[in-house]
Amino acid sequence: MATRKQMILPIIVLAVGIGGFVAISSMKKPPAEKEEVDNTPIVAYTEVVKAPMNYSVSSYGLVKAKYETELVSQVNGEILYLSEQFVRGGFVKKGTVLAKIDPSDYEANLLDAEAAVASAKATLVQERAFGKVAEEEWKRIENGIPTELSLRKPQLAQELAKLNSAEAGLKRAKRDLERTLIRAPYDALIESRQIGLGSYVAKGSMLGKVYSTDDAEIRLPIGDKEIRYLTNRGQNANVTITGDYAGEKHQWQATIVRSEGVIDDNSRMTYLVADVKDPYGLVSEKKQLRFGTYVTAEIQGSQAGSVTRIPRHLVVANQVAVISSDNKLKYQTVDVLRQVGSEVIIADGLESGMKVITSALDYPVEGMAVALMGDESNPQDIDKDTDTQLAMEDKE
């Protein structure tokens, strides 16, 4: 049987434990109250600016000469002379003698032709005199009816035909002699020369090739849907050409002079032709737009009216997220006129001064409150600025 001491000892130990727990608990500080956190999402935005704008259509192409001419010999003979300018890359003026073919045979042919003409003229004069004599003799004959032959009219016609033939031969002889001089057909750039001094050429032999330097042309492919943005289908539209010269980007002005009028079988594009005046700067002092240069082009189009341009990723299902006057998220329906690269052109739905949200939202819900990035009244921005300032002071 337990003694009285054995019964009281556990009670004392339990009481001491409870008393110690209560004492320790009374010494523990209560947890500090946490400040309320503002979970309003902070958004970046841009203000809408509406302004008049002209459409433009982008394209590309290669610069080529308006005229390319292959110089071909029209007579036979030996090359006796070559101009120093008749070399690849040389610039020549219209009418410049580039080469000369031996004219000896053609000078002789010209003398023969001139002699033939002189002989035919003399014979014609003589035949006319015979005709007048015959006519006078028939006048003395009473009751006589002269025939065409008796008046020598067929003989006169024959001599007249011989004279015409001789004059035609003279023209051919002069023309062949003139063709011994190979001249530039226009102000030109020499693309190639395929003859040498002393070489023999025949009719049809290739002598060289030249490019006209007054104008350059660029074929610009345009998608069918892009033509609606051009006034009068692009006719006479101004074009800004951009290309490289001496390792730097340069621009030239051009004009659309025509449309080729058909859709290309392979690319399914319509080609507009842009004309550039004086591409090599021979008349005006401007940078050379060399033939064969790859260029990009901006064709000026029709007026779009008062519009705004924003990044295309901000438009989803023809809606744009904007900030209302009471700083709440709102979806605004817009009318997209056109997409240009990474931007879209909007005519209706956005007005000047509206705030378009440009940052991403995790769980956007229309009507939710948002905070503007950079707004001084935004407590989260103030806390961030304070933390930054404290960190800088710690470093000091």
Rank of each mutant, 00 (worst) to 15 (best):
Ala134Lys: 06
Ser377Asp: 08
Leu314Arg: 00
Asn238Val: 12
Ser165Gly: 10
Glu396Ala: 11
Asp387Pro: 02
Tyr55Asp: 09
Ala120His: 09
Leu337Met: 13
Gly223Asn: 15
Asn238Gly: 11
Ser325Ala: 13
Leu282Gly: 00
Lys209Trp: 02
Val16Glu: 10
Ser267Lys: 10
Ala129Val: 13
Glu159His: 09
Ile256Leu: 13
Ser199Tyr: 01
Phe91Val: 11
Ile227Gly: 02
Asp383Ser: 09
Lys174Cys: 00
Ala347Asn: 14
Asp335Gln: 14
Asp224His: 10
Val210Lys: 07
Ile218Gln: 05
Pro364Tyr: 10
Ala2Ile: 06
Val283Met: 02
Arg219Tyr: 14
Ser150His: 01
Gly353Val: 08
Ile241Asn: 10
Glu343Cys: 00
Ser83Glu: 11
Leu220Thr: 05
Leu124Lys: 12
Gly89Ile: 08
Ala23Glu: 03
Ser104His: 12
Ser302Phe: 02
Ala166Val: 07
Gln158His: 10
Leu80Asn: 08
Glu167Arg: 07
Asp326Cys: 06
Arg4Ile: 12
Gly341Cys: 05
Thr240Pro: 07
Glu351Ala: 14
Leu71Phe: 10
Glu159Gln: 11
Pro185Asn: 14
Ala116Phe: 01
Val262Asn: 12
Leu62His: 05
Leu82Gly: 07
Ile24Pro: 02
Tyr45Glu: 01
Thr3Arg: 04
Asn238Lys: 15
Lys132Trp: 00
Lys64Pro: 02
Gly19Ile: 15
Ala168Arg: 01
Val370Gly: 10
Ile382Leu: 07
Gln339Asn: 04
Arg228Asn: 11
Val295Thr: 06
Arg193Ala: 09
Lys64Arg: 13
Glu70Trp: 03
Ala347Met: 11
Arg172Pro: 01
Ile195Gln: 03
Arg228Ile: 14
Ala371Trp: 05
Ala120Phe: 06
Asn143Gly: 07
Gln85Gly: 15
Ala129Ile: 11
Asn39Leu: 15
Lys328Tyr: 02
Lys355Pro: 02
Lys139Thr: 04
Ser342Trp: 01
Gly234Leu: 03
Val201Asn: 09
Gln235Met: 15
Leu111Thr: 13
Val49Asn: 13
Gln158Arg: 06
Lys28Arg: 11
Ser104Val: 12
Glu135Asn: 11
Asp215Gln: 14
Ala274Lys: 06
Leu160Thr: 08
Arg233Trp: 08
Gly281Trp: 00
Asp362Tyr: 03
